[in-house]
Simulated scan of single mutants.
Amino acid sequence: MTPRVDVVVLTMGDRPEEEAHAQQTLLAQTGVQVRVCVVGNGCTPQVVPPGALTVALPQNIGIPGGRNVGADALRAAGAPADYVFFLDNDACLPRPDVLVRLVAAADEHPDAAY
């Protein structure tokens, strides 16, 4: 079965070019199914991949708070994935197998997250 990964992309709307590139590398991932939530931390998200959930926070509540809001939105959307990944708007995944490799490592070491 193909692993499912919920991904929260946190943005302040200040890096649209970098954010578009970050999302391209996310959507290019192979071997996993991803569901995305873009959280505007004090802004309305402008760079949003097709089918993604969005949350616009009226004020910046910080990185942990913004990430938690996105994870909560994905969970509330139903059928949460077994894995959650957080991607900042200026980061990129250097290879198309990053998420599937992270899932494999998590499966190999199930106690690592505790």
Rank of each mutant, 00 (worst) to 15 (best):
M12D: 15
D14Y: 04
E17W: 02
H21E: 15
A22W: 13
Q24W: 07
T25F: 14
T25K: 08
L26R: 06
A28Y: 03
T30R: 14
T30C: 07
V32G: 03
Q33M: 08
Q33I: 13
Q33L: 06
Q33W: 04
V34D: 00
R35L: 06
C37D: 04
V38P: 00
G40M: 01
G40I: 00
G42S: 05
G42T: 06
C43A: 09
C43V: 12
T44P: 00
T44V: 15
Q46W: 01
Q46G: 10
V47M: 04
V47G: 03
V47F: 02
V47C: 02
V48P: 03
V48R: 01
P49V: 15
P49F: 10
P50H: 08
A52G: 10
L53C: 08
T54A: 08
T54R: 03
V55N: 09
L57Y: 10
Q59G: 12
N60A: 12
N60Y: 04
N60P: 01
I61Q: 13
I61E: 05
I63Y: 15
P64I: 00
P64M: 03
G65W: 00
G66V: 01
G66P: 01
R67H: 06
R67F: 01
N68A: 14
V69F: 00
V69W: 00
A73W: 01
A73L: 06
L74E: 00
L74S: 02
A76S: 15
A76H: 12
A76L: 10
A76W: 07
G78Y: 02
G78V: 12
D82G: 15
D82C: 09
Y83G: 09
Y83W: 10
Y83A: 08
V84W: 00
V84A: 09
F86N: 06
F86W: 06
L87P: 09
D88H: 06
D88E: 11
D88C: 07
N89S: 15
A91Q: 15
A91L: 14
C92K: 11
L93Y: 13
L93C: 08
L93K: 12
P94G: 07
P94L: 14
R95S: 11
R95N: 08
P96W: 10
D97Y: 14
V98N: 06
V98C: 14
L99H: 02
V100G: 05
L102V: 11
V103K: 02
V103Q: 01
V103F: 07
A104M: 13
A106F: 06
D107F: 09
H109Q: 12
H109G: 05
